[in-house]
């Protein structure tokens, strides 16, 4: 995208997320196809609408690479569901790459080392680069010796499938096996960035005491009352036992 996305939305580059979202919504309402049915310039309005959408995504998703989670490339859940039929890795759709491997910068440094990689790892790396994470895992399954590189690619592939527990464990394993490898270190760090970000975000919403007494006493009473007047349909509300 050539145009400055902030200019497209009419906000300053240091605008808050809230300001960006409000600006986006305002422009969306203005240029939405439904709002421009009688507009003689409706083709331009539609172009503008798409531009606004792209600008919003460019701004809001640009941090995804640093955060270490999905960029683009999310497949439909039907496609993803089909992949999980093999059972061993419950992938779901595609959680995209690292917001583009260029941004991540890791593969650049890796190019020389890649010559020495066994074919399965090279294949996995290529699959991952193109967003075929399930295929990458399949390629990795055939490898007997689990080197640090194996764990690294496994982490990336699992990350792409949304298997973040496994991804973090394998990223950690790669890092522990080769602690001086900056790329492994970086990936392991990225797997923890989300938690740090979440902790900061959470602060305004937590109180010192979040134990039992504050919990759903109201909703428990509500549930009891609901169940008294409903035909014994079972305890679905607030029920720990689903």
């Amino acid at each position: 995208m050539m145009t400055d996305p902030y200019k497209v939305l009419g906000v300053s580059p240091d605008a808050s997320d809230e300001e960006i979202k409000k600006a986006y919504r305002k422009l969306c309402m203005k240029y939405h196809p439904d709002a421009n049915v009688d507009n003689p310039n409706k083709a331009q309005a539609e172009e503008k609408f798409k531009e606004v959408q792209q600008a919003y995504e460019a701004i809001m998703k640009k941090d995804s690479a640093a955060f270490g989670n999905s960029g683009g490339g999310f497949g439909s859940y039907q496609g993803g569901y089909g992949n999980s039929g093999n059972g061993s890795y419950g992938g779901f759709g595609n959680f995209g790459g690292f917001g583009g491997f260029g941004g991540f910068g890791g593969f650049g440094g890796f190019n020389n080392a890649q010559q020495e990689l066994p074919p399965e790892l090279k294949a996995a790396a290529n699959y991952i680069r193109n967003g075929y994470y399930q295929e990458a895992l399949t390629a990795l399954k055939g490898v007997e010796k689990k080197t640090a590189a194996w764990y690294y690619y496994s982490a990336l592939a699992n990350r792409g499938l949304g298997n973040n527990v496994t991804a973090k464990d394998h990223a950690e394993q790669a890092y522990r096996m080769e602690p001086h490898n900056f790329i492994y270190q970086n990936l392991y760090q990225q797997c923890q960035n989300g938690n740090t970000w979440y902790q900061t975000q959470s602060q305004p919403y937590r109180t010192a005491r979040m134990g039992c007494n504050n919990v759903c006493l109201d909703s428990c009473l509500l549930t009891l009352a609901c169940n008294l007047c409903c035909c014994g349909g079972g305890n679905y509300c607030c029920g720990r036992n689903y």
Binding site: S88, G90, F92, N158
Partner: peptide, 11 residues
């Protein structure tokens, strides 16, 4: 595998 089981409900 925690990802596998929890992922089913995730879906």
């Amino acid at each position: 595998n925690l990802d596998l089981v929890s992922g089913c409900f995730g879906k």
